[in-house]
Each structure stands twice: as C-alpha cells, then as structure tokens.
Design a protein around this nucleic acid. Structure first.
Length: 957
RNA sequence: GCCCGGGUGGCGGAACCGGCAGACGCAGAGGGCUUAAACCCCUCGGCCGAAAGGCGUGCGGGUUCGAAUCCCGCCCCGGGCACCA
C-alpha cells in the first residue's frame, strides 16, 4: 500500500498526476494565446476577418453568485455542459461567444461580510477570485475579457442608466409599447391625452394648462415605468427590508431566511411590469423554452377574462371584477378588501335595528367594526392570515348595494379573503357557484341562489357548484339566460351590461408591479435625488455612476422577526454627508437629498447578457452593431436573443421574468434589436447526494459510511454504528459535500468533466456517486494508452489504413456523436465513444486516421487530454478551432442487417440479410426457419407481417 | 386541492416515429497476466428454472400482428401554484 506508484507504473501512464500536469500546461497555453476570445464585428474586440463567413452562436450560463462557501460538484454541471456545447460549435465553424461574470451584489454577500467583519467589497472580490480559480481548473473555454461583475462601477453605471431609461418612459397602451417621457409631456400639453384622475397631490378634473409646475410633475411621475408608490408592500422585519412578491413564499415568509412578512403601507420604488403583462404572456409562444417554465410564467402572469361590473351604493358606484358574469343573478352579497379606498364612505352610517351580532363583530357602529377589522388585518402577518385556516372572517360595513340585474339590495362586507391587489379589490359574492363565497355565506347566514343547474347526482348540501351547466334562476325583463351554458350566458350578460353602461368586458392579470427598492447597503444606488418638495428627480447620464459610498456600518438594520411596528432603515441613510448633496441640475447649484434605498439583486442580472457582448464600452451599455450581430433577430421567427441559455429552474418567475421585462423596455426604446433576451432556454437538473444520520440524528461524514447488503437489504454503518440514509442536497452541514477541487486532485479535470457529462441526461436530477468516477478515468486512460506508448510517451499509432469494420464503426460513431453533442446529449455521445475505444483496445492497434478522429471527438468533453494527444500526434495547432470530424455517408450504408423473426410477437430467430431484401424474400426466409417451425408447433400461419429488412412477425391461427 | 415532470437490473442510465428491452458505466462473479497484490486483459451477468421454457419496463385494463413507447383508470416519487373572484 505504501509502495510509491512511480516504482511500478509506467512512466507515461495517464494518472491523476499526469492529467494535472497536462491540464495546467494547456490552461496556461490557452490563456497566453487567448484561444477562446470571440471576435466582435465592431469596437475594441473587432476582428472582422474572423467574424466573416462564420455563423455566430451565443452560449450563456446563468449569472453565478460568488458564494463564500465555495463550489460543490453540482455547481459546474451547467457550465461544463455549455462548455462542451460551445467547444463543439467552435469545431463546426461557429463564432462562439461564451463568457462568465459575477452577480455579486445582494443579501448573501452582505450577510457573509457581516459575519466575517469585512467590507462586502473585500469579501466579494475574494470570493470571485476563489471561484475564478476553481472554474479555471475545469478548463472552461470562456472569453475572460468579457467577465464582468455587477459590483464594478463600470458595470453598475449602466445598470443605473437602464433604470433611468425605465424611469424616463411611460407605457402607451394604444401603441402597446414604452415611449420616452418627453413624448407624454408633449401629448399632455397638446391636450391629446387627458390628465388622469387619482394622482396624489393633484386635484381631479384639472386640465394640463391649469396645473401648476408641481402638479404637472406629479402627473408625469404617475406615468413613469419606475415610480414611487405609497402602497401596501411586503415588509420583512427579520431581514430589515421590503421584498418583491416573487421573493415571498406561498405561506407568507421570505424566500431567503424564512422570516415572516407583513403588509405595510410604505413609500417604495416600483416598476410597472404589469404594463407588459400581455406581451410577457403572448411572447412566450415564440420562445424555445421548456414547457414547464413557460407554464410557470403563464400562471404567475395569470391572465383572466371577465367583466367589470358596477354596483350602486349610497357611497357611490362600487366596481367589481368577475370571471363569472353569468352568475350575476346569484350575487347575494358583496365583499371588499380591508384596504379598499371606499371602505370609509361605505361604513359611515349606523347599524340598522336587526343586524345580527355575527355581522357586527360586537362593534357599536359600522365605522368601529370596519376600523377594528382593518387594524386586526394589518397586525397579522401573511403567514398568520393563512395559518388561521381558511375559516372566513369579516364584518358587515352597514352599507348595501343594488344588484344591477335583479335590483335586489344586498349587504356589503369587508373580509380579508378579498385581496386589494387583484381586480378591483371588491367582489360580487355568488355562494351558489363559488366555494369561498359559499363558506362565507354559511358562516354569516347569507342566502344562496343557484344560477347554474348542477348534475342530478349533485349533493345540494355539499357546497358551491363550479362546473358547467344550463343557467337557472337567471331572468329579468330584458335579459334571459335560463338554459344557456356558461360561455353563452357570460357573453349575453356582458353585452347586456355594456349596453346599459354598468359593466364591460375586461382582462385582468395576477401579476403585480415589481417592488424595486431594498433597505440594503450592498446594491446599486438609485440615480435619483429629491428636491425641496420631496419629489424625485432622475439624475442626468453625465452624473453616472452614482458610486456606492464607503460607510462605517454597512450592516442592515434588522428587527425581531415579528416586530411589524418598526420602520425600514436603509443603511445609506446613516451617511448624512452623502445623502445631502449640492448639485447643478441645469438651474444652478441647489441642495438635494439622495435616494438611500438600493436596487434589488435582480437588477444586475436583468441585462448582463448584453454587457458580455461589449464589456468595456464607456459610451453605450452595448454597441448597436455588436448587439445586432450577437443577439439580433434572425431566422424565420425573428426573435433573436441568446442562442442557448442554461441554468436551473429555480429562476422560472424571478430573474427570467424581470430580465424579459427590462429587455422589452430597452427594445421599445430602440436600444436593443431583439424583443426577447433568451431565445432558447435549457434547465439542467440538480446533482443531489446521500446524507447519513446516526441514531441521535447527527450527520456523519458520508464518505466514511460503509454499505453492506444483509439479507438482500442494503445497510449503512459509520464506525460500526448503524446510520440512516437520506437523499437531497449536497452541503457542508450535511457532511456530504464533494468539491470539484477534490475531483480534479484525485482524477483530473477531464475525468471530472467526462463523469458529469456521462451521468445521464442534462435536464434530469441524479445522485452523485464518487466511486463511479473511476469509470470515466478508465475511459480516458484507455484512450491515452491506445494513442501513446506508456513506456516512451510517444505516439504509437500506425499509418496504415484501418480495416473496413473499424472504419465503418468510426463513421457510425462520428455520425451519432455529432448529433448527440449538437442535441446536448453528451451522455450518449460518451457511450458511443467508449464503444469505439473498446473496439480499438480489442483490435490491439490504433490507426492514425481513427486516432485523429477520436481525439477531435473527445476534445469538447476532455479538452486538455485532447490537446495533449493532438500535439503528440504531431500537430502544432489547437484542437479548439480544428474541424470536427464529418461522417462519410458511404460508410454509413450497411451491407447486412439483422432481421428479427417473431412468432406471435416473440423473437424466435434472427437472420442476417441484405438491407435491400424484398418483403417476399424475407417472408420466405423467415418461414423456412427451423426455430419458427418449432415455435409454431404445427399450427397454421394466419398472417405474416413483414417490415423489410428489420422484422417479420408470424401470427399463428 | 389544482397544474407540470417522472417511475426500466443491486445502482446511474440506454432504447430517435409503436418493431431485438437493459447500450455505456459503477458495483459484483469467474478466469488470464503476476512470486503475490494492484493495474491491465478476457468472460459472465433482468428474474424464476437443472434445462426446455416461462415471467419481466410502478399497478389494473384497453388498442394493435406487435406496447417501456399510444389510450383509460389507479398508486407512488419530485417540482410548481394555492382565498387571484
């Protein structure tokens, strides 16, 4: 065991030590030669000669976050897959752009920095350096010149610039696109657009010429795609920041940290992503994305067709949204959300005499009841609201409304099962046809009118009937729905409402505007200041970047996780000498206060794929020609965008939705030529791992666990103690972490790459198994030994032409490997290459022609080894730009195939036949088979199915 | 509850449009080389059975000359959404 390997091993065996030497050598060489630098058509990276005549391919990995913990073997899976694909594309004549940068702002960097006591910039830079080194060791063919970091002022300057583009635009619903804000001002001034009602601080009904300067600014601000909103937002005291809807889990906790989240009225920055809901939805059809991701985005955007209907009340018209206008005759009460703006007016009267106490909640007046309910709702976290079960709560407002089709007077309630953020924040309740309304009606003793006839076997006591059926009880003097199905009844009702001006057909989306500010230090500062009126002003481009200032205390102000009375405190607000600033914004030096919130982590990743294209440009975020070349519209569908985007499915509705939104704004404003950022998306699966716990529930080192089969059952022990196996994530605390560094040291980077690619299809999750890695190493060792003499280190290939069988196998392999690599199926490509390699081992001779082709085919997978073998075969050029082998069609034609002979669908014989054999010939041969005669056992033949030349199926009587 | 995926040897997986189930690899068994071991090379290997043969792609049905593959109904696992009117 202690015998040094060198004593017994041949001097030139492909061991981990040799692999590591080869790998270091070629990595240095690639770096010195700039082998993977992709030429641009224009700008500082322009090399028009290299661009011409080559199709382009843009291969992108999801922007990694440089974690302080380091990588485990699961992290590089996607990077290796894109590297294999990118290398293959280079070898088939493409100009390939493949780069990797760092998404380095955000909560984890800040938390890690707080733990280590170092400034986030220092920790972040150290983490990036560590990750670069880890990834460099894998031989990833990235264009290093294009590696950007979101935390670099040269990068976030443009993130701020894009923010200002969004800020300085509005959405023209008629044109269905964003336009510069100056065009809105012109339209307002010309009277071509009315001043909308409801702008805070502006009296309704005023025309533009009558408005003062401040009111005009407020009106314009109310149209911006990035705007300040004073509205209920997700406030997370445990994190000390507000969060976007996408960052809050279904049970009302923060996605990160798992702290409770409260709805609080706060002034925060929002982005008007809702304007883009129709296009974000419909453009999904043009994308080559996994159906599951498209579906998740569709569900998140949540389009619903229905109608808005006005109900008359003493406090004025109360508007509801419903997807079931056909059930209007069954609306026996109404419910408004606790945050509804009309609530105060609705609850202004006194109780009538016979109102049940269940309705009043015991309050003396409707105002008390509603106010108490509203406050109780506010004090509860979303989590509490949900965990209190689905038991409906609410109080009567004391107000009544008139059902527009029946003329009936119905009570109006307030209840938290109606959400202010969706529809109009008010509903008509139809207990007969809606489960939630049914529950509420049962609890408060409200009447139920069925307007859709349920099937005969329907249990009337069981609740609402939400299915389709003929309408009943739905008739007045001018509208008769009875007998109509749901679709027909909906249409007729809407027509009736529209004719009377009490309702209209409409489409509603679940998507909410994007809460864009965070109370964090480690993020992009907003390029915004406030004037003496506390109105925001976007800074001019010339003042960018607004650099993140150095501060003494960058830690977030967090609170007890259930402390919902506290106020968010942005760390930057503590730096008073930075916050107060004197600027000349065109009207002389004046005092301003800076915005102290920072942007969410998603900001930097919303456009990084564009910066890779032109990372050093100081004039524009990306040069127009460069952008058009790499991501411009092309092909029949004219979509454009990144050709292949690989990453995990966890970003389905976060990054992927935000990035699409920003990209569309940039497209509308003419800054990019494609309407979508990512044309093709591929989700790689996760590499998971087994973890083991001892009887006390503590994790034990997974690599020290012994597996034995006892009585046919696998058992696991650690230091003779039985342990329990579980399957899940890989992590330090689970004591099952395996790192790429471990694998490179033990086997070499090429073996590691090959193993990750051979484990299975890229999109499937699977368990990591270190002991299986040796299989990939054996393959590379055999390939090495087939080409190189282990004693001398010299190539041992023969120049003679290979035999016919070998050559045919080679070309069949070339044909399938090409197709497999192009289709991201490296696992099956490797299987075919292994077969060919094993064939050469068995033949005992490696012909130069075969060796060259094999080395080139292996090059995308195991690039260092391929470079070394290519060099030892006498070449002085890199394999990177050498043409991938092409199969000779003549050698793919087989001269003999195996025909299967079945009797009653069971294989009974095999015949070697010509591929051009006729059906009749094959039938005769099959029927003559001795095995067939035996299997027939004297029975007569009823039918013979012949599929020449592969198969015959004989069906006995 | 609703919506997506997915269930194939001891394990990871292959099988492209309905036509040889289990490619390739790991682990295993046997053999060769070796003083010996490792490496390497060869052979075996779904299950039952001595064999002939039978049974086999989560379970139960169906379509078909023929089903891992298509259809219907279940079960289990993974993921997403969830008071969205």
């Amino acid at each position: 065991m202690s015998t040094p390997a060198q004593d017994t091993e041949p001097a030139h065996r492909y061991t981990a030590a040799l692999a590591n030497r080869i790998e270091a050598h070629w990595q240095d060489r690639w770096q010195a030669d700039g082998t993977f630098e992709a030429p641009n058509p224009a700008g500082p990276m322009a090399e028009p000669g290299k661009v011409a005549g080559r199709p382009k391919t843009y291969v992108l990995d999801m922007f990694p976050y440089p974690s302080g913990i380091g990588l485990h073997v699961g992290h590089p899976l996607g990077y290796i897959a894109t590297d294999v694909y990118a290398r293959f594309k280079r070898m088939t004549g493409h100009n390939v752009l493949h780069a990797l940068g760092y998404d380095a702002f955000g909560l984890p960097a800040e938390q890690y920095a707080v733990q280590t006591g170092q400034h986030p910039r220092i920790t972040t830079e150290a983490n990036i350096a560590t990750m670069r080194a880890q990834l460099r060791r894998l031989g990833l063919a990235h264009d290093q010149r294009r590696s950007v970091s979101t935390t670099d002022p040269g990068y976030y300057r443009w993130t701020q610039w894009i923010f200002l583009q969004v800020y300085n635009s509005w959405y023209d619903d008629k044109a269905q696109r964003a336009r510069p804000i100056a065009e809105l001002e012109a339209l307002l001034a010309a009277g071509e657009r009315p001043v909308p009602p409801g702008v805070p601080g502006v009296a309704d009904g005023g025309a533009w010429p009558e408005l003062d300067e401040l009111s005009r600014r407020r009106v314009v601000d109310a149209h911006r795609l990035a705007y300040l909103s004073h509205s209920p937002v997700n406030w997370c005291p445990g994190l000390g920041t507000v969060l976007a809807n996408e960052e809050v889990t279904a049970d009302g906790r923060s996605d990160r940290g798992n702290f409770p989240v409260f709805k609080r009225d706060l002034r925060q920055w929002m982005m008007r992503i809702t304007s883009y809901a129709p296009r974000l939805l419909s453009d999904l059809d043009r994308l080559d994305w996994p159906d599951s991701i498209k579906l998740q985005q569709r569900n998140w955007i949540g389009r619903s067709e229905g109608a808005r209907v006005l109900f008359r009340t003493d406090a004025g018209p109360l508007e509801v949204f419903t997807t079931r206008p056909d059930t209007l005759f069954g609306a026996t009460f109404m419910v408004v959300a606790p945050e509804h703006p009309m609530l105060g007016q609705l609850a202004s009267g006194a109780w009538e005499t016979d109102v049940p106490t269940a309705w009043t909640g015991g309050a003396a007046t409707p105002r008390d009841a509603v106010e108490g309910y509203r406050r109780a709702t506010e004090m509860r976290s979303d989590l509490e609201r949900q965990s209190e079960g689905r038991d409906k709560t609410g109080v009567f407002t004391g107000a009544y409304a008139t059902n527009p089709v029946t003329g009936e007077v119905i009570p109006v309630f307030v209840a938290d099962y109606v959400l202010m953020g969706y529809g109009t924040g008010a509903i008509m309740a139809v207990p007969g046809q809606d489960d939630r309304d049914w529950e509420f009606a049962k609890r408060f003793g409200l009447p139920v009118i069925r307007t859709v006839a349920p099937p005969a076997d329907f249990d009337e006591a069981s609740g609402a009937f939400t299915g389709d059926g003929p309408a009943i009880n739905s008739r007045n003097e001018s509208l008769d729905l009875d007998g109509r199905d749901v679709a027909e009844a909906k249409a007729r009702t809407i027509d009736w409402l529209e004719a009377r001006g009490t309702g209209q057909r409409t489409v509603t989306y679940k998507l909410r505007d994007w809460l864009f500010s965070r109370q964090r230090y480690w993020g992009e500062p907003f390029p915004v200041v406030y004037d003496e009126h506390d109105l925001p002003i976007g800074l001019p481009d010339a003042m960018l970047p607004v650099e993140l200032p150095e501060v003494d205390d960058y830690s977030p102000r967090t609170f007890a996780e259930d402390d919902n009375t506290s106020e968010p405190e942005p760390p930057l607000a503590r730096k008073e000498d930075w916050v107060s600033v004197t600027l000349d914004l065109g009207d002389g030096p004046k005092a301003y206060r800076r915005e102290t919130n920072t942007m969410p982590q998603w900001a930097g990743s919303c456009w990084y794929e564009l910066r890779y294209l032109d990372p050093t440009n100081t004039e524009r975020f990306v040069d127009a020609d460069v952008e058009r070349y790499w991501t411009g519209p092309q092909g029949e569908d004219q979509v454009g965008g990144v050709d292949l985007y690989v990453g995990g499915a966890e970003h389905a509705v976060l990054h992927l939705l935000y990035a699409r939104f920003w990209h569309k704004v940039l497209f509308d404003l003419g800054h990019v030529s494609s309407s979508e950022p990512f044309h093709r998306l591929f989700n790689q699966g996760m590499i998971q791992a087994y973890a083991y716990t001892d009887p006390r529930g503590s994790y034990v080192p997974a690599d020290e666990v012994v597996e034995e089969v006892v009585d046919g059952q696998p058992t696991y022990t650690w230091q003779d103690v039985p342990v329990t196996r579980e399957y899940g994530k890989m992590g330090k605390s689970l004591k099952n972490m395996v790192t790429p560094d471990d694998m490179c040291a033990t086997y070499g980077a090429d073996t590691f790459r090959l193993y990750e690619m051979s484990m299975g299809p890229l999109d499937v999750s699977r368990p990591w198994e270190t002991r299986a890695v040796v299989g990939s190493q054996r393959f590379l060792q055999r390939l090495w030994r087939n080409v190189v003499d282990e004693e001398t280190g010299l190539a041992r290939v023969v120049d003679a032409a290979p035999d016919e069988a070998t050559r045919r196998l080679l070309h069949r392999t070339i044909d399938t490997v090409r197709a497999d690599l192009d289709g991201l199926r490296a696992n099956t490509a490797i299987a075919r290459l292994t077969e060919l390699n094993n064939h050469v081992v068995k033949a005992g001779v490696m012909h130069r022609e075969v060796a060259a082709a094999m080395v080139l085919m292996v090059a995308p997978l195991a690039p260092h080894l391929a470079e070394e073998l290519w060099s030892r075969l006498g070449h002085d050029t890199t394999v990177t730009w050498t043409t991938f082998p092409v199969a000779d069609p003549a050698l793919l034609v087989v001269d003999q195939v195996t025909a299967v002979v079945q009797v009653a669908g069971k294989v009974r014989d095999r015949l070697e036949v010509s591929p051009s054999i006729s059906e009749d010939e094959l039938r005769v041969l099959a029927l003559a088979s001795e095995a067939v005669r035996r299997a027939l056992e004297g029975r007569a033949v009823r039918t013979v199915i012949v599929r020449a030349p592969r198969l015959v199926n004989i069906v006995p009587a």
